[in-house]
């Protein structure tokens, strides 16, 4: 499993990650980001790396 970390101080909930991995990240009713799971299967490494790559504020990292 790969551990996912979000730096919520940096996150501005622009929703790019939620568009790419909706089962992992979601923008709540209050406009804030929810991290739905703390890790994903190794098989989703590329997908996660794309979400990390696309975050305009660089708030996502992984183990």
């Amino acid at each position: 499993m790969i551990e996912i970390k979000v730096d919520f101080e940096r996150c501005d909930a622009n929703g790019t990650c939620a568009a790419l991995m909706p089962d992992v990240f979601r923008i709540g009713e209050d406009g804030r980001l929810r991290q739905l799971v703390s890790e994903v299967d190794d098989g989703r490494e590329n997908e996660l790396d794309e979400a990390i790559l696309c975050c305009p504020v660089g708030a996502i990292s992984r183990s």
Partner: peptide, 19 residues
């Protein structure tokens, strides 16, 4: 909404802090 995010993600990957 979704059409907006469709346009954002392909550009985001070329300019993010990681890139």
């Amino acid at each position: 909404g979704d059409p907006h995010m469709r346009l954002r993600t392909p550009l985001a990957r070329f300019m993010s802090p990681v890139t």
